[in-house]
């Protein structure tokens, strides 16, 4: 599986888009989605909620497990993906696209995220 070049990645298997007008999009990687199996429930941060890089801000339930969702960046949530709340399977079918999770007004530029190549090596793909 290929990880899009334009995204940056956390070691907790989240991705972060390029920041546009101060806002970036967050999701989980295809590697993570594949490892979790069918996602059946997502709990996402609320609009207006402050999230902190590396800290839990929600959860994903799959058939076999429940996993904390970590924000790869600090900031304030501006939007969450209602489509994913209604149809969590989008996380499996389109983790980098329609399965995005939430958008953040970035308060602090993250410094420790991985490039696509680095993440690919990290995930052992």
């Amino acid at each position: 599986m290929s990880n899009p070049e334009q995204l940056r990645y956390s070691k907790e298997h989240e991705w972060l888009s390029a920041v546009e007008d101060g806002v970036a999009t967050v999701g989980i990687t295809q590697h993570a989605a594949h490892a979790l199996g069918d996602v059946v429930f997502v709990q996402l941060p609320e609009v207006g909620q402050d999230v902190t890089a590396g800290e839990s801000c929600g959860e994903l339930e799959s058939t076999k497990s429940v996993s904390d969702l970590y924000s790869p960046v600090s900031g304030t949530v501006t939007e969450f993906n209602q489509d994913v709340v209604d149809d969590p399977a989008l996380v499996n079918t389109a983790p980098f696209e329609g399965g995005w999770l939430f958008k953040v007004r970035v308060s602090e530029e993250p410094s420790d995220l991985l490039t696509a190549d680095e993440y690919t090596a990290f995930a052992g793909e």
Binding site: K11, E12, H13, E14, I28, H31, A32, A35, L36, S56, E59, L60, S65, V66, S67, D68, L69, Y70, A123, G124
Partner: peptide, 14 residues
């Protein structure tokens, strides 16, 4: 919380 972290639950290749 007794939950699994995404990081911990993702099996690596070995």
């Amino acid at each position: 919380m007794p939950s699994v972290t995404l990081g911990a639950s993702v099996p690596m290749s070995t």
